[in-house]
Design a binder for these strands. Sequence first.
DNA 1: AAAACAATGTTATTTTAATAACAATTATTT
DNA 2: AAATAATTGTTATTAAAATAACATTGTTTT
Lengths: 211, 211
Amino acid sequence: MLPEKTIERLSKYRRYLLEKLEQQEEYLYSHELAAALHLTPEQVRRDIMLIGYTGTQRKGYSIKELIEVISKILDGDNKINAVIIGMGHLGKAISNYFSIKRSNIEIVAAFDIDSSKVDRIISGIKSYHVDNLDLIINETDAKIAILTLSPAGAQDITDQLVYAGIKGILNFTSVTLRVPEDVYIENYDMITSLEKVAYFVKENINNEGTL
Amino acid sequence: MLPEKTIERLSKYRRYLLEKLEQQEEYLYSHELAAALHLTPEQVRRDIMLIGYTGTQRKGYSIKELIEVISKILDGDNKINAVIIGMGHLGKAISNYFSIKRSNIEIVAAFDIDSSKVDRIISGIKSYHVDNLDLIINETDAKIAILTLSPAGAQDITDQLVYAGIKGILNFTSVTLRVPEDVYIENYDMITSLEKVAYFVKENINNEGTL
DNA sequence: AAAACAATGTTATTTTAATAACAATTATTT
DNA sequence: AAATAATTGTTATTAAAATAACATTGTTTT
């Protein structure tokens, strides 16, 4: 199992490499990739070492091969399905983001409680009432849920998701969710992120020229 | 300057403490706060030590006082203004999130290029055409920008933002932005996050019962 | 063909963050 | 009033991540 931070970077490497591939480029150096993503060449080489790929010295890495190796790690062999819970603005934004199918993650369904958002196709994704959660998740064999609903219902829905077989959650609610330990959670808390930016802006402004 | 991770937790502590305060609670223990946020009591005590607050032994921390100390650190003395760039679904989602004024960060303006989203109030925030970026940022003295626009224009807009005096960016585009080093950037890359969840879900499923 | 160069692959070091350990202290109990 | 129990504050240890160092090797140049 690779380190979390390495996985994050691999995802970014792949996207950059795909761009380069489209531009008909064949090889690239660790320092190019590093410069593009604001990393150090050492970091890049280390990550590539960890995934067991080796380039050729003096020539760099084969873009095509490196994409293949990263994809094998990130995607595995099977397609993985995801669902969105909550089709408000955030849910729609995410649907749009992923309407272009990248990698082999597919969003196969969305859920909401609002009748005006249910039983229709929104941003290319079929939207159901949450009452059908268990049924649809089983039918589609979805393993990931993206939570964009209000904090109030978050834990209750999470319990249902876990029961239905969901093994990974991308959590946009500000709620700290309780799940069994075989369920992986990635939290994204906008309030915290913004407060963090504010803090470091404030600190930087106060310490101007203190170096 | 406090560690980044401590700042993140302080933001979460404050929100939990505010809830408790509303419930008329007066004191809480490190282990209560830890349990609520899935941390260890040691971590909580260490963070509180770092901000220089001390509770009373056997009795715990005064909720009211702890909120005050955290707020002093996160908020500082002055209000800080933010703007949103891009009023698509994501921009609107974020506007709604922050329409209830929390802490002392205020979103004072939004920008878009789409004429249908300009010169009107959306989710309680006045929306302008991007041509007015410099003017409005100076007028409002905004220091933070939240980027929810398409990747294509992201670097160009960022250059304009920096020129206008923005010192912190919450970046929702998947672009790696180039900025002077006194500008703090917090990146949020949904594609990477989802691919990361997918990877760990896959690994967990494959290693079931391997412990 | 030999030498110089420039890039990789890997190990070592440093830094940062998290966890654990434990002494100090205060409320509670007897 | 003394003993006990429970919680804090702080230091020490461990773990994770990033950075740096350097030996190796393939390319290019002369």
